[in-house]
Design a protein around this nucleic acid. Structure first.
Lengths: 327, 327
DNA sequence: TTGAAAGCGCTAACAA
DNA sequence: TTGTTAGCGCTTTCAA
């Protein structure tokens, strides 16, 4: 049953033709008479032949794997965003007969990525997140391997796909401003992430003229709690959270302190996910499509692997979802 | 700079020895004089030689990749458990110069896994979750490839690592019973998951004599809400949640309904994670070490790939964490 | 339109 | 202790 040791030679012998012809029939490259082509394909179908990826890889210097690089702390990795995005990548990759090799980057330590690159274990890489001085991007550039980043970067000549965070955050912020908010606080995560900076800028531009306070690097709960304490003490009218994880922490803190939303303070988030979507009251937030983003990243990468030169920057849209948390 | 086209032939020529000698120096197999061995290694070090994995793979029929199979719905994948577990796997794999190929299984659809197996893209597989009639296990057995499951299974001859869910859940349940609880409800997820069944059994055994109600297949929020409604109507004294995700839903529902914990109902969870750990009040739960589990699974798999015959069932411990949610 | 033959870079008998 | 020689299974010139 499991006779999957069938090789291209076996087929050639069986059909009385050469390996070359078989190879060509499969790949579709070169001229082949429709007749023999069909003979080969039929035989393959019947005998359940599966080409050997390693052999093909060695001959063509290809692995048919693509690298997927994500932050290596479980708090990050577990974020709905990366998971959704990855599912989009997998969808597209699978259809093109590629598989995903996963690598983690933790605290600017890119050893895992370096190993994968040095060992030539992937044909291209998708970077799940961009940092301001991103060592991963540097390494990828140096390696010469095709790669695309999910998230923007200032680095030159980097193919990138991203949501339009700046516009989205600016739009949401300005809507909040129009609601008559006089003072707002922005609680955000690590400022070495490009997306954090974009959101901050969107917030600031949208809130132009409003009294604002910015709390950066609130990655852990204590920091979030402290930021919320400070914001409430300063009688902020609205807390805007940089992402779902932070919003989750903010909601927990407000609940603990018995602060009512939206009567005592309004809350909005620049990223939505299942982490907060069932909250009572519902949270005003931005909606993106990370799965579509992942799919686009993968499509782009595959085209690069095929030798095409893709658009450098692709932006995906968003939606503003106004809910009860901001009146 | 990027002269990484150095091959074993180059080294041999450069050093005036044969490829074989070089190969042996690297692998450490066969007899080699310390002197030449050192010469080769020094040369390699100096010239930054990196062996070609594809070539080695083709020659040895190995890929130096291991497959990591997880549920393909983002709600599941994002669970802290799988992420932590994966980080454990990656740690061990990386040290042994293996990489992780990720594959998803969604709703008993194992096509992704099948492709990876047929294409021989991995040397072994770690299954992140076990189902009662697990098609993945069947496929893996049939393929003959080494694999280990994270989670138990009834299938014969399957190497498996797991937490001791039964004992853990039974212990927690019996502690709750000792606290004088007269009626308890168990809210659980899909009953095709082996772990769900184990936890249920632990609950039932631990609660022996107590008036209990079981709610199975509560994977979505509506179902959780309905279960909670029913449980509260039946004046349950304690809601025991099968995992963190469900507990999260239960807590949200109780909050929405203004039910006080633990005064109006006690709550416990059979799995802890960041999803619920900051809850007020703190939730009584079980603590496991999924990262250690992943690491153990990977170590076991690697030993199997090396041809060893490992222990069939390995169990990791747990801790009962009694918190304010159960008095 | 087809085939022969030379690799891709490494490992592993078998000899020496 | 080291080297010679076949492969691993596929692709790809170059010829026919």
């Amino acid at each position: 049953m499991t006779t999957d040791n069938l090789t291209i030679d076996d087929i050639a012998r069986e059909l009385g033709i050469s390996k070359t012809t078989v190879s060509r029939s499969i790949s579709g490259k070169g001229r082949i008479s429709e007749k023999t082509r069909k003979r080969v394909l039929d035989f393959i179908e019947k005998n359940n032949y599966k080409p050997n990826f390693m052999a093909r890889g060695l001959a063509q210097s290809r692995t048919f794997n693509i690298g997927w690089v994500v932050p290596g702390d479980s708090e990050m990795t577990a974020l709905s965003f990366f998971q959704q995005c990855m599912l989009g990548v997998i969808d597209v990759a699978t259809q093109a007969d590629y598989d995903l090799l996963i690598t983690t980057v933790f605290d600017h330590n890119i050893n895992g990525l370096l190993r994968v690159l040095e060992n030539h274990k992937v044909d291209g890489v998708i970077l799940g997140q961009t940092l301001t001085h991103d060592p991963a991007i540097r390494a990828l550039k140096k390696s010469g391997i095709p790669f695309v980043t999910v998230g923007s970067t200032e680095e030159k000549n980097v193919v990138q796909v991203d949501h339009d965070h700046l516009s989205a955050c600016k739009e949401l912020a300005s809507i909040l401003k129009l609601k008559g908010i006089r003072s707002a606080s922005f609680i955000a995560g690590a400022e070495d992430k490009v997306v954090t900076l974009a959101r901050r800028r969107g917030f600031e531009e949208g809130m132009d003229g409003v009294n604002t306070t910015i709390y950066m690097n609130c990655d852990r709960n204590e920091e979030i709690d402290r930021a919320v304490d400070d914001a409430m003490r300063s009688k902020t009218e609205c807390i805007v959270c940089e992402d779902d994880r932070i919003c989750y922490g903010v909601l927990a803190k407000l609940k603990k302190d018995g602060v009512q939303i939206p009567s005592q303070v309004r809350v909005a988030s620049f990223y939505n996910s299942s982490l907060i979507e069932d909250n009572q009251p519902a949270i005003t937030s931005l909606w993106y499509d990370p799965k579509a983003l992942g799919a686009m990243a993968c499509r782009t990468l595959l085209s690069m692997i095929e030798g095409e030169t893709p658009v450098q920057r692709q932006k995906l849209g968003y939606e503003v979802m106004l809910k009860a948390s901001t009146l």
